[in-house]
């Protein structure tokens, strides 16, 4: 594997290898010295065109725990904000000897374009409304560690699927790993052609779900008539306490963050024992270590 641009780049055995490697990486976190020498002398660039402190810090921690040199290139205060093209930035990174570029970008496909201009590996850290493959990997990792398996799990992904890169990557990866995905939300926000189950009725889906993944819903979507009001959205598709209690006892509740408490998820649910939201963050570092390790570790 040269790049990680899409969850569709991963077949079942590669995806499982990432998750198994992440599990090994996680054991590091319990040790006194949290570093491995694996990527010493290698350079990882975090190229962020969108503010996302959470994701950037996660990748930065992952690279540093593997002893890589990390350069943070953010859109603010760099040549990027002065209108330099992605291609020119790519050539600069190339000249700096970047072994891997982790890119977050508001335009779908920007990581694909970048991968045609640099020699190093490109990791998609979220592009537009396309994909966010390491988020899907950490979600799968979290499900597997909580529920012991992925094959056969019923996963409901609830909310603004249309604009969600997290949902796209999860649909692909979970299908690869044998889980059954149902997309739930108002018809305006569920694209009809993702080749997976669709339901417009959250209450009907909950009793059979092993996992409920709540997506962030931006209030701006109301202005474009995707739904009438936050109140109506929360009433029809928000996960509150009574709804949570319709879930099977073992079921977990996930959210990629950042949350709109009171909109798609009630505080009572976010803070419940079913919620994996905090461990998703911790698992993110392990999974990203695994990805960087597998992309770069074999070389040099």
């Amino acid at each position: 594997m040269k790049h990680l641009l899409s969850a569709t780049d991963l077949d079942a055995s590669t995806a499982t290898l990432v998750l198994d490697t992440a599990a090994e990486m996680a054991t590091l976190a319990g040790r006194e010295v949290k570093k491995l020498p694996t990527l010493r002398g290698r350079t990882v660039v975090n190229l962020f065109y969108e503010d996302s402190t959470r994701t950037r810090i996660s990748f930065e921690a992952a690279a540093k725990r593997l002893s890589a040199d990390v350069i943070n290139f953010s859109a603010k205060g760099s040549s990027v904000s002065k209108g330099e093209s992605l291609k020119d930035t790519a050539l600069t990174l190339q000249a700096m000897g970047a072994d891997a570029v982790v890119i977050r970008h508001p335009a779908s496909g920007a990581p694909h374009r970048l991968s045609t201009w640099v020699a190093g590996s490109v990791v998609n850290a979220g592009d537009g409304t396309h994909e966010h493959p390491t988020q899907a990997l950490l979600d799968a990792y979290t499900m597997r560690s909580r529920l012991g398996r992925l094959a056969g799990l019923s996963v409901a992904i609830v909310g603004d699927v249309l604009h969600s890169r997290v949902a796209r990557s999860n649909v692909h990866l979970l299908a690869t790993l044998g889980a059954k995905v149902t997309l739930v939300g108002p018809p305006t926000l569920i694209p009809p052609d993702l080749r997976t189950e669709v339901s417009y009725d959250l209450d009907a889906v909950l009793p059979d779900a092993d996992v409920v993944m709540m997506l962030r819903v931006q209030r701006e979507r109301m202005a474009a008539s995707y739904f009438p009001s936050a109140r109506e959205y929360a009433r029809r598709y928000g996960l509150d306490g009574p709804r949570m209690r319709r879930l099977p006892d073992h079921a977990i509740v996930m959210h990629p963050g950042p949350m709109n408490r009171g909109m798609e998820i009630a505080p009572e649910v976010a803070d419940s024992a079913r919620s994996t939201i905090v461990e998703q963050v911790a698992n993110g570092v392990s999974v990203r270590m695994a990805v960087l390790y597998l992309l770069l570790g074999g070389k040099s």
């Binding site: 779908s108 496909g109 592009d127 537009g128 409304t129 396309h130 796209r168 694209p191 052609d193 993702l194």
Partner: peptide, 15 residues
Amino acid sequence: AQMHEGEVATRLGLT
């Protein structure tokens, strides 16, 4: 809008 609305646009995350 960025490309034809359909399965490919959905997959690529383009409006």
